[in-house]
């Protein structure tokens, strides 16, 4: 449909997040970050939280941006909406990106608006040809407006649509292929959605274009049950990362290599040190993979004696 898509493919010269652990930036932690300068790969903020005229939020984000790499993560673009994207919101986002020059911009495969109502949740879309065309057009529009490629995040969902004609990984792969956007792989969302829909997370991961992963999200979930008594996991962002998600993350990293990894925590936010400890755990996984890659390259030049 357009020639700019191939240009949008992330290139060596494009800004990227460092392949390290990062944390969501919370106003309660501004002072601690600036006074202690923690060893952290990057910070991430929700774009809409900083779309305010002035005051402490823009001030502290600017100061922290001077010292750290930044990921801007949108929650209000409503890329999956049936309606056209909001031009005013696109302009506000472009201004934000121009001001803070983040290494990454990401948004969700979801919708959150209907008419002029903003529903403040990430709502699911059916995986159909019509949705695919619409989502691709919207991703194209965002990328054109920003003049850079974006990352698209796989959703946590609680319901599926009878109308869907393709799997979620198939759908996402096709969006990535057609638009040249990258993938924000939310490993917690994979676990949550696979439990919620009786899928195999290992197969799900391998069905995605893992070479296009630009960032990983890790978060905590809450456990409920559905009407049949089966577990229903809620993407709460209100708990530490679960062990099962850490395990899936380690598996993902062996497939993707080291990738910038965010510890997401938006509810019941603990002390900064607690989050930092989770980030350091992710860093150890990333370092382990980097070490493994080096070890692998050494091992192939060796003859390994296997005991009989």
């Amino acid at each position: 449909m357009s020639s700019h898509r191939s240009e949008m493919r992330r290139t060596a010269g494009a800004p990227t997040l460092p392949a390290r652990a990062g944390l969501g930036l919370k106003p309660a932690h501004f002072e601690a970050v600036l006074s202690t300068c923690p060893d952290i790969g990057f910070f991430e903020v929700h774009a809409e939280n900083y779309m305010v005229p002035g005051g402490s939020l823009p001030h502290f984000l600017e100061r922290i941006r001077e010292q750290y790499a930044l990921s801007v993560h949108g929650v209000g673009m409503s890329i999956g909406a049936e309606a056209a994207l909001d031009r005013t919101h696109l302009d506000a986002l472009a201004a934000l990106v121009a001001r803070y020059e983040p290494q990454s911009f990401s948004e969700h495969l979801a919708w959150s608006t209907h008419g002029d109502v903003f529903l403040n949740d990430l709502l699911p879309v059916p995986y159909t040809a019509a949705t695919l065309a619409r989502v691709c057009a919207h991703v194209d529009q965002v990328q054109s407006h920003l003049g850079r490629s974006m990352l698209l995040e796989n959703p946590a969902t609680y319901l599926e649509f009878e109308a869907s004609t393709m799997s979620e990984p198939e759908f996402i792969s096709e969006v990535v292929r057609r638009t040249g956007c990258g993938l924000l792989l939310d490993v917690n969302n994979i676990h949550v959605s696979c439990v919620n829909h009786g899928r195999d997370p290992h197969a799900y991961v391998r069905a995605l274009p893992l070479d296009q992963v630009g960032e990983i999200h890790l978060a905590g979930f809450a456990t409920q049950t559905d009407a049949a008594g089966d577990p229903l996991l809620i993407d709460s962002h209100g708990a530490p990362v679960a062990e099962v998600v850490w395990a899936l993350y380690a598996e993902v990293i062996t497939l993707t290599g080291a990738v910038a990894t965010l510890i997401e925590r938006d509810n019941d936010v603990p002390a900064f040190d607690v989050l930092l400890a989770e980030a350091h755990r992710a860093d150890r996984t990333l370092c382990g993979q980097a070490g493994q890659n080096m070890a692998d390259s050494v091992r192939v030049r060796r003859v390994v004696q296997v005991p009989a």
Partner: peptide
């Protein structure tokens, strides 16, 4: 038009979105 993998009532799952 909503479905669940185990055939359970989708209303219970829709309630998650409503609650969010």
């Amino acid at each position: 038009g909503l479905r669940t993998w185990n055939g359970s009532d989708p209303n219970a799952r829709f309630a998650v979105y409503r609650n969010n």
